[in-house]
């Protein structure tokens, strides 16, 4: 029984469902992250206080570990699937399908965009999470001055460009991933699928533009 269950767990449908579920979890996370980032427009105090409260929430370690696990599983599962997919076709075609029979670019490049995003996340954590630790006191509470770090980092046009590029890529990844996740967990219906696709585009645009607004704002306004 155990082996049978294990085989089933390893099946492509389950792996895809895991991709979908972890993907949806991460989608929720990036939306929340992006919303928090928007506090940059309100000022340093709001920005830093939000960060402070978040990291000092008793559930924070749990959430952090959960997120890490989501990313880890999404990543490992993605690598496995990609590896299997490569093996399923060892020789490609001389010409690509065109016009009405071509698949969308976003859907064809999920593994590529995902890999770049993985690199981006690591660098992002190094830059900010584990970056220079400035402190500041707001309303008598000493806390990390993340605002200062952000302003510092985004003075560099290279950083701004890298962020804009990666976050646009994130939007691209989400546009397909968000809709496909529903399909992978078994939610596909002629009446709703088109709406989900629309929602995915709107959602991806909001997340990507919301994220990109921060480096751009910092670079252009906080000189």
């Amino acid at each position: 029984m155990a082996t049978a269950t294990l085989t089933l767990l390893r099946s492509s449908v389950v792996k895809k469902a895991i991709m979908g579920l972890t993907g949806l979890g991460l989608s929720g996370f990036v939306l929340a992250h992006m919303t928090g980032n928007l506090l940059i427009f309100k000022g340093a105090q709001a920005y830093n206080t939000y960060g402070h409260q978040l990291t000092h929430n008793p559930a924070y370690p749990l959430i952090a570990i959960g997120l890490l696990a989501l990313m880890g599983i999404h990543f490992v599962c993605g690598i496995t699937l990609t590896w299997e997919n490569k093996r399923a076709r060892t020789q490609g075609y001389a010409v690509d399908a065109a016009d009405q029979k071509a698949a969308s670019l976003a859907s064809r490049t999920m593994a590529g965009t995902g890999s770049i995003l993985a690199v981006f996340i690591v660098l992002h954590l190094i830059t900010f999470k584990y970056g220079t630790l400035y402190t500041i006191t707001h309303d008598g509470v000493e806390m990390r001055d993340l605002h200062r770090l952000v302003i510092e980092v985004f003075q560099s046009p290279v950083y701004v460009a890298w962020y804009c590029f990666s976050l646009a890529l994130l939007g691209f990844h989400l546009k397909h991933g968000f809709a496909a996740a529903f399909q992978s967990i078994g939610f596909g219906h002629p009446k709703w699928s088109a709406h989900i696709k629309c929602l995915a585009v709107v959602y991806a645009l909001i997340v990507a533009l919301g994220f990109i607004s921060q480096p751009l704002y910092v670079y252009l306004v906080h000189r």
């Binding site: 997919n85 399908a97 859907s107 064809r108």
Partner: peptide
């Protein structure tokens, strides 16, 4: 066979 990436091809 490979896995589904929902490309719709």
């Amino acid at each position: 066979f490979g896995n589904c990436t929902v490309t719709g091809a």
